[in-house]
């Protein structure tokens, strides 16, 4: 029913814009990753694998990448551990007030990243709310130093930030589970525990997978929380990229690292989508 002109009119402008401002920049990132910087700090358009070779050879790069993945993995696990029970409670047990609880769960999703990261900074500092509270309650005599400027602070803050992202897909997967399946399981004599592990949990896996992917990918690329709360031991791969694009002025090397991150993310998305499709087949 839609004419050729209509279809062209709705698809051409966004395709051109997205090509110009997303596809070209990502391609440019790829090109930059082969270039080098001359002694005069000019970009040399030579097509070499030097930057990638450096990534493998210089320990700090791949070690930081591994540490970032380890931080992201912990954020993913903790986000799931918090988001799943919440989503399960909302979907299956919150009969009254379900709507209110749902709103409460998604509000933090749209509340400023910076506000939430800053809140943790004021809580975890050595004169912060938590340390002074612990001393006020006579639980400690000295401020606990490990709270701020540590990987712990980064994991805690990122978990706080990405738990609502994880909650959404898990909750929508749980909501899609046909309730008569659950009822049937009960009628056939399964206990609540059995019903959960044999019916509900397997059916929720696509959502769990989507949530896990979200938390991992977004945490992996984060550079603001490590700068704010991480200290020297909480540095992540994106912080190295930021410094390469700033003071260190080596855009090509920074691009090579970013491109590896991009590839890693796309690979994860690809496999997560594959698995999700397989698990969704009933």
């Amino acid at each position: 029913m839609f004419s050729r002109a209509y279809r062209l009119a709705v698809s051409l402008p966004p395709v051109l814009w997205v090509g110009m401002f997303l596809l070209v920049p990502y391609a440019l990132l790829f090109c930059y990753s082969f270039w080098t910087v001359s002694a005069q700090q000019a970009i040399v358009h030579s097509w070499m694998l030097d930057n990638y070779r450096q990534l493998v050879r210089v320990n700090i790069y791949w070690q930081t990448l591994l540490r970032s993945m380890w931080i992201a993995a912990r954020v993913m696990v903790f986000s799931l551990l918090l988001a799943f029970p919440l989503a399960y409670f909302l979907s299956f047990h919150a009969t009254r007030r379900k709507d209110l609880f749902y709103q409460l769960a998604i509000i933090p999703l749209w509340v400023s990243y910076l506000v939430r990261a800053y809140a943790w900074k004021t809580i975890l500092g050595s004169d912060g709310v938590l340390n002074t509270l612990l001393q006020y309650a006579h639980l400690t005599t000295h401020p606990l130093a490990f709270l701020l400027y540590s990987p712990f602070a980064v994991v805690l803050t990122l978990t706080h930030i990405y738990t609502p992202f994880t909650f959404l897909p898990v909750y929508s997967a749980l909501e899609r589970i046909p309730r008569n399946l659950v009822e049937a399981s009960h009628d056939l004599g399964a206990s609540q525990w059995q019903t959960f592990w044999r019916v509900i949990f397997p059916l929720s896996l696509p959502g769990v997978l989507a949530g896990a992917t979200f938390a991992f990918v977004l945490a992996l690329g984060d550079f603001l929380a490590p700068l704010l709360l991480g200290g020297p031991s909480g540095i992540m791969i994106s912080n190295i990229v930021v410094s390469l694009f700033g003071a260190a002025y080596n855009w090509p090397l920074g691009s090579a690292i970013s491109f590896c991150m991009l590839l890693l993310v796309l690979t994860l998305l690809f496999f997560s989508e594959k698995l999700e499709k397989r698990w969704s087949v009933q």
Partner: peptide
């Protein structure tokens, strides 16, 4: 879904 840093850079 992509970390903002990649789009920004």
């Amino acid at each position: 879904i992509l970390p903002g840093i990649i789009t920004g850079l």
